[in-house]
Design a binder for these strands. Structure first.
Length: 259
DNA sequence: ATGGTTGAAACTCAA
C-alpha cells in the first residue's frame, strides 16, 4: 500500500494538478497540507470520482489539512490536542483499514515559525512539543502509526542545497531540529532516510529567485513510521517531476510503499 | 541588503 504526503498550496487552485497526479501515482492514502479552503469549499466531487474517501479539516484562507483514502477511513480526529484555543487547522488523523489490519495515519502541517524570536517561533516549538506528546500516546497503543506531512524542518545540512542560507531561518533552527530528532528518538523512522541515500533529495523549491531552476531546494516534507510500519517499508520516493508541471505547488509529493 | 512569487481574499498576510 502506498502512502503519500503533499503540501498542495491551495487545493482549489491546484485541483487539476492534484487529479493528474492522483491518476498517475494512484496512491492508497494521501495526506494533504495547506489546502487553504473551508470545508464547504473543498472540491470533494472530482476526488471522490477517482475512488477516494475524504476527511478534511480546513479554515478560511490559510493552513488546512486533509486525508484521501481508497480504503475505509475511520475514527477521524481533527486538531492536535494540548492547547486550548488553537484554531489553526494543521492536524488530522484517521484509521485506515486494509485487509483487516489498521494503520493510524496523520496528516501534519507544522507551523513555519518565521521569523525567529517571535511568538510564531514559540508557537512552532510548542506545537512540536504537542506533537511529541501525541506520538508518545499513540506509540503506547497497539496501532501502527504513520505521521506524514510538511514538518517545516530541514533535519540536517545535507537536506538543503545551500544550508548556509538557512541558518537564521526557523526551518533550520537547532531547537526545532532537536525537537524533530526527539520524534525519531521515540522510535519513528524517517522513511526517506531509512531507505535511500537522501542527501541532495529535496521536496520544496521556493517560487522566488529561480530556486527550482537552480535546484536550490530543501527537504522538509517527511514520512515518519512507527517500528511496525517501518518493518513493512519496501520503497520510498519523491515525485520531483511534478515541480516542473504547469502551475505547480512549491512542494512535491513524497510517498512510501508498505507491504 | 534587497527582491524575488504565489494563493486566498480582501486592497494584505502568510509562506
Amino acid at each position: 500500500m502506498r502512502i503519500a504526503t503533499w503540501n498542495i498550496n491551495g487545493v482549489k487552485a491546484r485541483i487539476d494538478t492534484l487529479l493528474d497526479w492522483l491518476r498517475e501515482a494512484s496512491p492508497d492514502v494521501v495526506c494533504l497540507q495547506e489546502t487553504k479552503s473551508v470545508d464547504d469549499g473543498f472540491p470533494f466531487d472530482p476526488i471522490e470520482g477517482l475512488g477516494y474517501n475524504i476527511a478534511v479539516h480546513g479554515q478560511k484562507g490559510f493552513n488546512g489539512v486533509a486525508l484521501l483514502s481508497k480504503h475505509p477511513l475511520e475514527d477521524v480526529q481533527k486538531g492536535l490536542p494540548g492547547a486550548d484555543g488553537d484554531e489553526q487547522a494543521r492536524f488530522i488523523t484517521g484509521l485506515v483499514s486494509v485487509d483487516g489490519s489498521a494503520l493510524r495515519i496523520a496528516s501534519a502541517y507544522m507551523p513555519n515559525g518565521n521569523p525567529i524570536g517571535t511568538d510564531k517561533f514559540a508557537f512552532k516549538l510548542a506545537w512540536q512539543q504537542r506533537l511529541e506528546e501525541w506520538v508518545k500516546t499513540q506509540l503506547a497503543s497497539e496501532e501502527s502509526l504513520v505521521v506524514a506531512g510538511d514538518f517545516n524542518i530541514i533535519p540536517e545540512p545535507i537536506d538543503a542545497k545551500n544550508p548556509e542560507n538557512w541558518v537564521t531561518d526557523a526551518l533550520f533552527q537547532p531547537e526545532a531540529r532537536v525537537a524533530f530528532r526527539r520524534l525519531t528518538g521515540l522510535g519513528l523512522a524517517d522513511a526517506l532516510r531509512a531507505v535511500e541515500d537522501s542527501g541532495g533529495v529535496y521536496t520544496f523549491w521556493d517560487y522566488q529567485a529561480g530556486a527550482w531552476q537552480k535546484n536550490n531546494g530543501i527537504r522538509i516534507d517527511h514520512i515518519l513510521l512507527s517500528p511496525e510500519a517501518a518493518d513493512r517499508l519496501v520503497e520510498v520516493g519523491v515525485d520531483r517531476h511534478v515541480r516542473a508541471w504547469e502551475k505547480p505547488s512549491d512542494h512535491v509529493p513524497v510517498w512510501a510503499e508498505l507491504r
